[in-house]
């Protein structure tokens, strides 16, 4: 049900996609945008609640992705992961900038879900149910870790330092939390 947004584009093989991007081909870039803008903007808007600022960060991130495509190394993971990291890091950088101060780190999962629900956009409203289901079955610790890393833009070492949790524990909780999401997303 949550995949009603699956795009009706011809699937482009990842390798073709990458060579098209390296050739700075406009059509390939548009394809990339249509296929990944939702998820990538999701990575940013999880961390940055303000829509205008999130979009500004998304603009800069996407332009950077296209300009720096030659830095992408296929042997180190999928294109999406590389792009998502650029977006996440840009968003984290933004939350640490002066204009954001600490305001950016006030996000909670509940705020995020409420944000979805309160949105007048019908598609987002439908999706909010999916987002709620996605967060099912998370225990306190997992919810806490996910909230900080996924939504507040903390790095795992920041969580460890700030909340005095051993690094190994942070790691295994990140693992456990993502496993819950993974299980939920498979069943949705």
């Amino acid at each position: 049900m949550c995949f009603i947004f699956k795009l009706n584009y011809f699937p482009l093989e990842e390798q073709q996609l990458i060579s098209g991007l390296r050739a700075k081909d406009r059509k390939t870039t548009e394809y990339l945008y249509e296929k990944y803008s939702r998820a990538l903007f999701g990575v940013i808007s999880r961390i940055i609640f303000d829509k205008d600022i999130a979009e500004e960060v998304f603009h800069d991130s996407f332009v950077k992705i296209i300009q720096k495509i030659d830095n992408y190394d296929e042997s180190k993971g999928r294109l999406y992961t590389w792009m998502a990291n650029i977006c996440r890091n840009s968003a984290i950088d933004k939350t640490r900038s002066k204009e954001m101060s600490q305001a950016g780190k006030t996000n909670t999962i509940d705020d995020f879900v409420i944000g979805f629900e309160s949105n007048s956009d019908t598609l987002d409203h439908v999706n909010a149910i999916g987002v709620k289901e996605l967060m099912n079955d998370l225990n306190e610790d997992q919810r806490f870790i996910l909230e900080h890393i996924y939504f507040k833009g903390y790095t795992h070492s920041e969580v460890s330092e700030e909340f005095d949790i051993p690094l190994g524990t942070v790691k295994s909780r990140v693992r456990a939390a993502i496993q819950v999401l993974k299980k939920n997303i498979d069943s949705i």
Binding site: S37, S45, E55, H59, L123, L134
Partner: peptide
């Protein structure tokens, strides 16, 4: 990677048309 993309896709939002034009 697949799961994380699926999670991002689900929790993601489509950016405004204006930002696409700007990009």
């Amino acid at each position: 990677e697949e799961a994380m993309f699926a999670i991002d896709e689900l929790t993601g939002k489509i950016p405004s048309a204006a930002i696409k034009t700007k990009i």
